[in-house]
């Protein structure tokens, strides 16, 4: 009986404390922050957000709980539209979208109803270097071989990264890549390479090779022929960067747009119109959380590469890209096969 009484009193006291504290907190800081992930549960975007959610709250005033929710659809355009038009503009709702989504409004996709330059970019957990990878048994060892002989490369369909980079290479360098379109995802492409239905894939993240097929690197099953990024990956000094093999400034300018998703690979964004100081707080907490030893240990276990890109930098690059000359945008759009 006494136990119950004590319990009752504690509960009552707790409720009162909450009642007093809640309105005070609600005014200054959100008690809960939601991160909407534009992709399905269990994927890299979701895993990244889950990992971040466990630690970022500690670095924000009021230590809010961070809840991760999935809002998959249309390659994260759905989540981008939501964060730009529907989400509250008080910092209580953020979103994880694909880096390539930025190009959708730029390439005049009518369904993409957001302005990337107006979104508030909090940061990206890292950049990514995309590669062209060829199955070793084909005997193809260098870029020149791809110009001389046809290769079957897997693609998840037009408009996807696995298609864009291959199509752009054919256009710019005259490679004879035959894109076999329609695979459901990267996993299916890998399996098709293993059973020799496919010879190659372009647009595979370098860090993903380590998490998805480390044995292919270990057992020397593949050759990496080319890298797509703004600059060379330190691990791949001998693999040519796309900008080193492009000849004209016109091509390079267009390619700068296409590799935007390698720079902004796993971004976290806030809605437009959130107060500047809230954004500053979020950006600071983001960088601090990504340096947290516990987070880093978890990320290592999850094979997530952490090399944060600051939100301010992304904001600048996105604004630059959005202000590109119409001709450059049109070239890039054509190259991507859209």
């Amino acid at each position: 009986m006494t136990m119950l009484k004590v319990l009752g009193q504690t509960l009552a006291a707790g409720c009162m404390a909450l009642a007093v504290a809640a309105p005070a907190q609600a005014q200054s800081q959100p008690r809960e922050i939601a991160i909407n992930v534009g992709f399905g549960a269990g994927g890299v975007y979701h895993t990244m957000a889950m990992t971040l959610s466990r630690h970022m709250g500690r670095y924000l005033p009021g230590n809010p709980t961070i809840v991760v929710r999935t809002m998959p659809g249309a390659g994260s355009i759905l989540a981008a539209n939501h964060i730009a038009n529907v989400a509250p503009k008080d910092g209580s709702m953020l979103a994880v979208i694909g880096g390539g989504t930025i190009l959708e409004p730029l390439f005049r996709n009518a369904e993409a109803k957001f302005d990337p330059a107006k979104l508030n970019w909090i940061g990206s957990t890292s950049s990514e270097t995309y590669t062209c990878v060829v199955w070793k048994e084909t005997g193809v060892t260098k870029l020149q071989d791809m110009i001389e002989r046809p290769l079957n490369a897997g693609s998840t369909g037009r408009g996807s990264r696995t298609n864009t980079y291959g199509a752009a290479l054919n256009e710019l360098l005259g490679t004879k890549i035959k894109l076999v379109q329609g695979y459901r995802g990267m996993n299916d492409i890998h399996l098709a390479m293993e059973r020799r239905e496919l010879d190659a894939v372009c647009g595979w993240g370098y860090s993903s090779i380590f998490s998805q097929k480390p044995d292919w690197l270990k057992d020397d099953k593949i050759n990496i022929l080319l890298q797509f990024a703004r600059e060379k990956h330190p691990d791949l000094p001998h693999v040519p960067l796309i900008f080193d093999v492009l000849k004209t400034e016109r091509d390079k300018a267009a390619m700068q747009l296409l590799v935007l998703d390698s720079y902004v690979a796993w971004p976290l964004v806030a809605p437009p119109g959130v107060p500047a100081e809230t954004i500053a707080t979020l950006r600071k907490a983001y960088i601090a959380a990504l340096a947290d030893p516990t987070l880093l240990a978890e990320a290592k276990q999850l094979q997530l590469g952490i090399a944060p890109v600051a939100g301010e930098d992304i904001q600048k690059v996105v604004q630059e890209v959005m202000a590109s000359p119409a001709e450059v945008i049109e070239n890039a759009r054509k190259l991507s096969g859209l």
Binding site: G73, A74, I77, L78, N81, G157, R158, S160, Q181, R184
Partner: peptide, 20 residues
């Protein structure tokens, strides 16, 4: 949805919902 090859949007009735 978005067709696996060309990305043509089929029977989506201008909604993002049916893209997938």
């Amino acid at each position: 949805g978005s067709d696996p090859q060309t990305g043509t949007l089929r029977y989506t009735f201008d909604t993002l919902y049916l893209w997938e």
